[in-house]
Nucleic acid binder design. Structure first.
Lengths: 160, 160
DNA sequence: AGAAAATACCGCAGAATATGCTGGTTTAAT
DNA sequence: ATTAAACCAGCATATTCTGCGGTATTTTCT
């Protein structure tokens, strides 16, 4: 017997459930069941299983960036001067503590980072960038201020 | 009387509701009410109002990128050769049609774009990039492949 | 300051939904 | 062909949703 946890194969119904929940996270189970041509009980069973198996990580409300005054977005490319462990540790600690940095990816060879920064206005951005470049070990940086959002797909692609 | 739709000021309870729903989008109304020290009725009233006023844009299930085999992420910087309207139109049409491109921001002066591409593996990425560079008007491009996700905050910042 | 109005809150009741259980059916493997 | 496993529908109970009426608190106007 294999020690690897078996990952059940998803059938068409499971995929339809995921696709629907990804678009409408608060749909009632009875309506979800109708949507996927199932009666409520087995539908709920499947949802519970998809949650337990980790296919569904959670449910979240999407809030309005405009209404909550956080509609200015910038991508910042940052290079560290060395791959030194303590330099990275300091950098990461700062990033985690800075709430305006909503995303941080290590890219390419290991010294480069791409940050996504969400702020209310340029003044706030200036402060965030000022703090960022003061971190020891931070070398070059370049800001890509977002002018227009052309596309944004939050969900994953589901092939039904 | 003003024709501007009045935007009610959010009090501490509204912010607490938004903060909770952003973390737990499927919490029951009775539990949400307990969380914010309210009885269910006014709590539901507030949620409905926050939805109607656009503070809450929707509810979504977050699916597992790993489990659904879409865990390879790349940021791609693309420059168009001109700001020509039809060039941009063609570019945008391609982007919208390509499901692997999950995000596309126009940045800086107007010819540069930052794409976020989500694929299952390098082979798929190669195809996506190949199609991308074949679009007429696309000039230089540079790929930042994500090695490690250092931080990811989906929600907005709420100051309670 | 005092009265009137508006707003927000609570608790209750009927309707809808969630959830566990049972039994019957299909599917897969031996 | 037989057995085992998985799946599905329907029912019963518990929970939750949701609208309504009454009360308290805050706001506004005189």
């Amino acid at each position: 017997m294999s020690l690897i946890a078996k990952s059940r194969v998803l059938d068409r119904i499971d995929l339809a459930i995921l696709d629907e929940l990804q678009k409408n996270g608060r749909i009632s189970n009875v309506n979800l069941a109708k949507q996927v041509n199932l009666s409520p009980s087995p539908c709920l069973d499947r949802v519970k299983r998809l949650e337990a198996e980790g296919f569904i990580e959670g449910y979240f409300a999407k809030l309005s960036e405009q209404k909550l005054n956080q509609s200015l977005l910038a991508h910042v490319q940052v290079s560290l001067v060395t791959s030194n462990t303590s330099v990275f540790k300091t950098f990461k600690e700062h990033i985690v503590k800075t709430p305006q940095v909503v995303e941080c990816d290590m890219v390419a060879g290991g010294y480069d980072y791409l940050l996504k920064v969400r702020v209310s206005d340029m003044n706030e951005y200036r402060k965030v960038l000022g703090d960022l470049v003061d971190i020891p070990g931070v070398g070059t940086h370049h800001t890509y201020m977002v002018i227009e959002k052309v596309k944004e797909d939050t969900g994953l692609r589901i092939d039904l």
